[in-house]
Write a protein that binds this DNA or RNA. Structure first.
Lengths: 193, 193
DNA sequence: AATTTGACTTGATCCATGTTAAGTTTAAAG
DNA sequence: CTTTAAACTTAACATGGATCAAGTCAAATT
């Protein structure tokens, strides 16, 4: 069950009663997603935002040349969606895909609104995690502007030490904005020095 | 007075009564900032988030070499701060500076909390604008990863047509992640074609 | 065990953008 | 009005990282 993790994630940010947790939790729909399956498909409207109970998912963009760009990833206890699509009802730019067997709890925008009404502190929680997500994208933008590929890689490894195990080098390179070949060279250079 | 703009900005996202607007508005502190003055200084804690009533401000990072990187900018009706610092109470990474005479309304975190209590729909508004800010940083990350400098510049001009007048080329180049010289070259190339 | 497939490495070459530096235009300040 | 400084342009040269192409290695499939 993912409810403990869900509760813990909320209580890390706000005070909330067990009853409120129950009423919010009951609005989510459990879905088991096999490795390789899509959670959100680009071009369709993202009708759900997902709480990841276990597993790993990536959210990436594909350009006209078929090149893939990793925008976000998520593990146990993170939320994942295409937020622009979810909020505005526009077609998703991102594919969100499980890269291992993953258990998610899906919340529609109606479910989220209802949760906000039933448990106002859930809205405070939602604001807090959105602010965190905003801050981390801002930090990523800052890194992209001010750091070399090597510095970004070192920073990435420090920030997400567990990630190197779960994500392939292709995805990490894509997240950093470099080619897999460059990442490979860069790693061997770092090992030598 | 900036109250009309403030009201309009909120009502674009949520329903709110005049009384609620009044109670929120009264929590803000008016401050006139002259061109060149700082709104937030890097290294100090950002104690305020600011609603810009008129004028223009930039938020930028300075690296160890003294190089400046434009992270965000704001005009009439936008909010600006160093969000990470404001939320976590850590020293600000950004300088926020007026680049023309600017009128802002400052809200401390206590003021924001009080506003959320007095006017719950103000919290919904705050969530909505934070989600928008998140989405636009995500889009910027996507552009940085997938587009050439020239494509990013064209996209920037389309997205913020009024900006080229207000921001110097140095700031625009910095925002796009290229040198001012490259932007100059790129512009003359675009004019020819 | 043999084969296919995907992930990673390594080398050669190329190009977009950075860097340095000089010159020009514009705007601010005395 | 003059001076100074900042913003912008242009050119020559340097370089980080991309691209193209082979090759290695390990895991999955038959």
């Amino acid at each position: 069950m993912g409810k403990e993790l869900f509760t813990e994630s909320i209580r890390r940010h706000v005070g909330i009663t067990d009853e409120e947790i129950d009423s919010v939790w009951s609005l989510g729909i459990e879905r088991r997603v096999k490795k390789g399956q899509y959670i959100i498909h680009n071009g369709t409207v993202a009708k759900k935002t997902c709480f990841i109970s276990s597993g790993t998912a990536v959210g990436y963009f594909i350009d006209t040349k078929g090149e893939e760009y990793l925008i976000q990833f998520g593990f146990d206890g993170w939320w994942i969606s295409d937020i622009s699509s979810f909020l505005k009802g526009t077609p998703a730019l991102l594919n969100v895909q499980a890269i291992e067997d993953t258990l998610v709890y899906e919340f529609s925008s109606e479910a989220i609104s209802e949760a906000f009404e039933k448990a106002p502190s859930f809205q405070s929680y939602f604001l807090a995690i959105t602010q965190n997500a905003f801050a981390s994208f801002q930090a990523r933008t800052l890194n992209n502007l001010s750091m070399s590929a090597e510095e970004r890689y070192v920073d990435f490894c420090n920030k997400y030490p567990q990630v190197s195990q779960k994500l392939s080098q292709k995805w990490i390179a894509s997240y950093l904005g470099i080619s897999p070949e460059s990442l490979s060279r860069l790693k061997s250079k770092l090992l030598k020095s």
